[in-house]
């Protein structure tokens, strides 16, 4: 996997490339509440940009701006060098930005192939006989999933019968197939076990190798470090750091992510708690 990646990266030298998506100094207010302040982020083709942060750090606000659900209040948002303001998720999709939400990705009771083509169905025939090209869609779904490394024998099964990881993968494969240039993944591994997470991360890497710019939102630094090329840390709506992979080690990333100095203080406080007192209290009661 790594060989194909380096070959891809060497095709275009970093200096000549324009960022697919570039946010600079973005801010966003909900009424008087400042949700984002001065956040910058760049997404390049064939790279994975990880956005890390605790709950409430502004991760979801940030992706909602890129996905077209919200508009930013300050700063600039450029797609391939052109400054824009997205009005709807449909507009974002048309500009090549696809978002895979953790829980909103698929319709569980519908067959895999119907989910894959939902909203972008293929037709054949004319006039009143215009109809869905079921065979074409079934084979395409099968082929595209296979290309991502998912060998699903029966694409007619309800997608709800797949595992959580597989469902995320179908959503990713769908975004790749429909020509997304930028793929935003909202906590794709949050609800998954270790093995399932590994599978999903592999498909994230596969999407990167297909030349997409990937934004991976996560609060797990270990997952981020496995696949990420650059890391943006958010804390209470502001930038807490932006690093390239060779500029930061996993331990440092984990430490910053976990709250850095706050965590050290917490560990001191916890360490001083006198344990024997507690058990004594229980025995008396």
């Amino acid at each position: 996997m790594s060989t194909s990646r380096t070959s891809k990266a060497s095709q275009t030298s970093p200096a000549s490339r324009k960022a697919l998506v570039a946010l600079s100094d973005i801010s966003k207010y909900y009424g008087n509440v400042k949700a984002l302040d001065g956040v910058s982020l760049e997404v390049h083709a064939g790279e994975i940009t990880c956005v890390l942060g605790d709950n409430g750090a502004g991760k979801s606000t940030l992706i909602k701006i890129v996905a077209g659900l919200h508009q930013h209040d300050g700063g600039t948002f450029a797609i391939e060098g052109e400054e824009t303001r997205l009005g709807s998720p449909r507009e974002a999709l048309d500009r090549g930005i696809a978002t895979v939400y953790q829980d909103l990705a698929v319709v569980p009771l519908m067959p895999v192939w119907r989910n894959f083509f939902l909203g972008s169905e293929i037709h054949k025939g004319r006039g009143p006989l215009r109809r869905l090209d079921v065979e074409e869609m079934r084979t395409t779904t099968h082929r595209e999933l296979l290309r991502m490394g998912i060998d699903l024998r029966d694409v007619d099964q309800p997608i709800g019968t797949l595992s959580g990881g597989q469902r995320q993968c179908v959503a990713i494969a769908r975004a790749v197939h429909f020509g997304a240039k930028v793929l935003i993944l909202d906590e794709p591994t949050a609800a998954l076990g270790v093995k399932q997470s590994g599978v999903v991360l592999k498909y994230v890497a596969a999407a990167r190798d297909a030349g997409l710019g990937v934004v991976l939102i996560t609060h797990n630094p270990h997952h981020a470090y496995l696949v990420g090329d650059r890391f943006v840390l958010l804390k209470r709506g502001a930038m807490a750091g932006s690093h390239a992979k060779d500029g930061i080690a996993l331990e440092e990333l984990t430490r910053q992510m976990a709250g850095g100095s706050e965590l050290e203080q917490l560990s001191h406080e916890l360490a001083r708690t006198p344990a024997p007192d507690l058990s004594g209290g229980v025995a008396k009661g």
Partner: peptide
């Protein structure tokens, strides 16, 4: 396809442009 989708998962359907 859209009928199944809006009944099965309205928000997911909206997110893919239904």
């Amino acid at each position: 396809n859209w009928i199944f989708a809006v009944g099965g998962a309205k928000e997911a359907a909206r997110a893919v442009g239904v």
